[in-house]
Structure formats: structure tokens, C-alpha cells
């Protein structure tokens, strides 16, 4: 199974990750190798096998409905580079 340039572009779009033109060929080659490699999985039958999402057979623990957090905006927003009126700035969103 090979991955072509268009698929690379689609993956780059879906994952919102700019790929430099010079990188495309390398990524194409390596991704093809990786997918070829994982294609080994197709060699084994998994009929009637339940998929496993978690290593332990446990169930979800639930939290009691309580407010435990207090406002720490000022401190938290020190990691953000653009803040205005307490809000995080992004390039204009068009719905």
C-alpha cells in the first residue's frame, strides 16, 4: 500500500500541519514504509475478537458533582501569547 502526494496533503490538512515542499517526498516514502509494515496485521484472522481499548478491565470511576476549581485565569494565561479582555486571541473566525 503506498501513500501518494494527495493523501499526504489530505493528512496534512486534517491534522492542520504544514508540510514543507521539500519534506513531502521524504514523508511519502517513510509513511509508505510504515503503512506497509503495519499491513502485517492483515495476515491474522481476528474474527469474533473484541477490540481492546484499555489494558485493564476496569470501569470508569465517577467524580462527585462539586466545584473544586477557583479562578486562576491570570496565572494560567501567562502561557498564552495573545490575550485581550481576558480572551485568547485567534485570527478572525468566519462561521
Amino acid at each position: 500500500m503506498s501513500i501518494n502526494k494527495d493523501e499526504i496533503k489530505y493528512l496534512s490538512l486534517l491534522s492542520r500541519m504544514d508540510i514543507d515542499k521539500n519534506e513531502i517526498k521524504d514523508i511519502e516514502e517513510k509513511l509508505t514504509k510504515i503503512i506497509d509494515f503495519v499491513d502485517q496485521l492483515q495476515t491474522i484472522s481476528t474474527d469474533n475478537i473484541a477490540p481492546m481499548a484499555h489494558p485493564l478491565n476496569q470501569s470508569q470511576r465517577l467524580r462527585i458533582d462539586e466545584v473544586t476549581e477557583t479562578n486562576d485565569r491570570e496565572n494560567i494565561q501567562k502561557n498564552a501569547q495573545q490575550i485581550e479582555k481576558g480572551m485568547y486571541l485567534v485570527p478572525k473566525v468566519i462561521d
Binding site: R63, D65, E66, V67, T68, E69, N71, D72, R73, I76, Q77, K85, G86, M87, Y88
Partner: peptide
């Protein structure tokens, strides 16, 4: 109508100053 968020202990009440009820979990820290 829960007091706190579905996955964090931040208040889910309406109308707070922007981002004052968004804790680290809500922010995807």
C-alpha cells in the same frame, strides 16, 4: 444542570467573566 463541568471541577454556571471558569482540564492543558 450540574454544578460542575462534565470532566472537571470548574463551575458550569453561566455568565462569568471570560475564562474565569475554565480550568486546566477545560483548557486542554
Amino acid at each position: 444542570a450540574a454544578k460542575s463541568k462534565i470532566f472537571s471541577g470548574a463551575s458550569s454556571s453561566y455568565g462569568g467573566e471570560p475564562n474565569t471558569q475554565a480550568c486546566l482540564v477545560d483548557l486542554g492543558y
